[in-house]
């Protein structure tokens, strides 16, 4: 066991050189690399934290926008629903009004139709009634309808003698109105009948196509009439009753 001091000195120098070499090529690069990597990791963490904060902020903005959008959407939906409701109500009201109008118009049209039909029936019924009556009178009694009407009017004048005089007062003319111009013999009979009760009266005959078949006497303030309207009305009532009854009776 001996110490070679030259070797000791050389080993000291070698060791110091080795310290410098390892410091230069091992420790410093490794530690600097580790520090740089840690710094980079820290920087990345900072970036990640910032990115997370930005993401959170963006998320908050997005959620706020989403909430605002949903609110706007709900408002718009509510407004549209309300508008649709109003339009629906308006359309329903319009339809109801139109239906009411059409129903009213249809009812009016039906009434017009019924009135027209009734008038036609009235006219046709009256005409048929008169023709039948006239034919029956001619066939059975060799009489004309106008003559029988004039006779009937004469009877009524006789029956209402007092009343007629009282109502006629001091009248000096009498007007006989008929549906069409009466035959001269009939006019003469009526004139005779009236002048028998009112000797000084002047009898005048007029034709009114608008009037129903019959006679109307107007003398002063009194008026006496006989027309077939009452008969036709009776016939109309009878036919209406028959139609109403017929609708309930089933055919055999």
């Amino acid at each position: 066991m001996s110490i070679d001091w030259i070797t000791v000195a050389a080993q000291l120098a070698n060791f110091l050189v080795l310290v410098w070499l390892l410091k230069r090529f091992l420790y410093r690069p490794i530690l600097d690399g580790i520090d740089a990597r840690e710094a980079e990791i820290a920087e990345r963490m900072q970036v990640a934290v910032r990115a997370k904060e930005e993401a959170n902020a963006a998320e908050a903005v997005f959620r706020a926008q989403q909430a605002a959008l949903q609110s706007e959407q709900a408002t718009a939906t509510e407004a549209l629903r309300r508008q649709a409701e109003e339009e629906k109500d308006a359309l329903l009201k319009e339809v109801h009004d139109r239906i009411d109008r059409e129903r009213t118009a249809w009812a009016a049209h039906l009434q017009d139709e019924a009135r027209s039909f009734t008038a036609k029936m009235h006219k046709a019924g009256g005409h048929a009634l008169l023709e039948l009556t006239r034919k029956a009178l001619i066939d059975l009694a060799d009489e004309t309808l106008e003559a029988r009407i004039a006779l009937h009017l004469g009877k009524q004048i006789a029956a209402m003698d007092q009343d007629l005089e009282h109502a006629a007062g001091a009248a000096d003319d009498a007007v006989i109105i008929s549906h069409e111009a009466l035959p001269k013999p009939i006019e003469k009979e009526i004139t005779i009948a009236l002048q028998r009760r009112f000797p000084k009266i002047d009898v005048r005959f007029e034709a009114d196509p608008a009037m129903a078949l019959g006679l109307s006497l107007r003398i002063g303030g009194a008026q006496l009439a006989w027309t077939v309207d009452t008969y036709i009305d009776g016939l109309d009532t009878h036919m209406t009753d028959q139609l109403a009854a017929g609708s309930e009776v089933r055919p055999q």
């Binding site: 070679d4 070797t7 080993q11 080795l18 070499l21 390892l22 090529f25 091992l26 740089a36």
Partner: peptide, 29 residues
């Protein structure tokens, strides 16, 4: 040059060489 110094150089060369080899092109990224 005795064996002590020579083998010390070998150890130094190994340590330095391996260090240089492994730490070259060291980049943080």
């Amino acid at each position: 040059i005795n064996a002590t110094i020579f083998y010390t150089w070998i150890v130094m060369a190994m340590l330095t060489g391996v260090s240089m080899l492994l730490t070259r092109n060291l980049r943080a990224d």
